[in-house]
Design a protein around this nucleic acid. Structure first.
Lengths: 249, 249
DNA sequence: AACCGGTGGTTCGCTATTAGAAACAAAAAA
DNA sequence: TTTTTTGTTTCTAATAGCGAACCACCGGTT
């Protein structure tokens, strides 16, 4: 393990939505290290476009290189070309937004969004991480993980996202068992208040869960009687995407 | 400048669309350094999710952290909330896709795309870099840059992207002068074959070009007589976005 | 089964690189 | 104006990284 690189990557973590700009000395104080060191790291990052210095304020912020790497990363997964069209079709058929959530370690990460025509955007954008124990899109992934992994997620703590987030370990495991039997998940307001989700899992060639496909939107637009129709649409997409995944993975 | 960090960022450059996966020794040979060093760098990056190792092949590839940082980066610019809705409106009015290109050093970078309903996707995705001397979206930015910056771009070389890319220095400068007079640019097949572009510039609070807004699509869908109407739509969007930019920058 | 060339991962001593105090110039703030 | 704070540069002690040699493992060949 390289300490210099480790320090540098730790530094990057400080550039967040809440605090996107940092002065050299300001950041050094925050990290409890010499401002000289911070300066050198930022200067090196800047040469590669990972941060850039605003000429006026002299403060540093994230650079466009992240966009470039994110772009090639998404290309690697053939999402835009293969999966997105299917998602878009479901979005148009159901008039709701469709999300592709990928499994990454003990968390989920949103890889693609097909917006419905109804322009109601959510506070979820591509690249945002999610906890696996709340919301249909996440639970449907967790349901198919090995028991040991499920435990690991639970051990990390079940902090509630909303008033409807399941906080009891046993209740969660039971819920997951049911989802596994059904082959799909439905939830309302678990991850975000007043938002429903209908989700199905996606598997790799060797039958491991790797992702989920989700229809989501404001709860008032998806009463119980409309769920079966949306689910049918989603399951058709699932099969289609599944076939493509087998060929790749 | 930190050499260790510099090396590490140089290493990342090798993960491209063309070669997204690397073995430790393979990459070491490519970079002409010890495989031990490469291993240490990859291991450190992996702890932060910037690369990940595929369990089967043991090869490394880019990790999801880039998506996360790209996401917060885009949030910083308030694009999704403020500018995207305007772009979407133009896309629906004209039935063509609308692109937001940002100025970054001597290059452009695509920050947002509002797709038209007609599902014809281009090989351009968010985060891709573009050269400033070809195509309406780029030239309209270059046209408003100071002469010294224009020279710098030209000095770097005018490699043709297509058969219609302007390669003569004088011809280019003359074209830019005209664009500056008109306040907008129109081109066909300069950056990508059989693709037209109509573009207008966007300025920061202190009257510096920072970006461009572009309508683009297959050339057969935009004959000369339809250009004025599309331009009108685009210029309305320009004013609207401009007003928002003044408030931010 | 033994072999071989390949892989990713580990160890350890020498040495190049990095950290951090101090100093600097410039720009805000007093 | 002075004072404080900023980003940046310089210097040297000492830490952290380099790389040869190492191991354990895998997959194909003999």
């Amino acid at each position: 393990m390289l300490k210099t690189l480790d320090n540098a990557l730790e530094l990057l973590k400080h550039f967040t939505r809440e605090k996107p700009q940092w002065g050299v000395r300001e950041l050094a104080k925050e990290m409890n290290i010499s401002h000289t060191v911070v300066y050198r790291m930022l200067a090196t990052f800047e040469r590669y476009g990972f941060v850039k210095q605003e000429p006026k304020t002299k403060k540093y912020e994230l650079g466009f290189s992240f966009l470039e790497y994110a772009s090639t990363l998404r290309d690697n997964l053939d999402i835009t070309e293969l999966i997105y069209p299917v998602m878009k079709r479901v979005a148009e058929a159901t008039n709701e937004s469709v999300f592709l959530t990928w499994l990454d370690g003990l968390e989920g990460i949103c890889l693609e969004i097909a917006e419905s025509r109804q322009q109601v955007k959510y506070a979820m954008s591509i690249g945002s991480r999610t906890l696996l124990y709340a919301g249909a899109s996440n639970k449907v992934i967790m349901a198919y993980l090995p028991a040991s992994t499920q435990s690991a997620i639970i051990e990390k703590g079940l902090r509630p996202r909303t008033g409807h987030t399941i906080q009891d370990k046993e209740a969660l495991l039971q819920d997951l068992a049911r989802i596994r039997e059904d082959g799909w998940a439905y939830s309302v307001g678990e991850y975000t208040d007043t938002v429903f989700g209908i989700a199905v899992p996606l598997f790799s060639g060797d039958r491991q869960v790797v992702a989920s496909l989700t229809i989501a939107g404001p709860d008032y637009r998806m009463p119980a009687e409309k769920v079966p129709e949306a689910l049918r649409e989603l399951q058709a997409a699932q099969q289609e995407v599944q076939a493509m995944l087998q060929r790749i993975f």
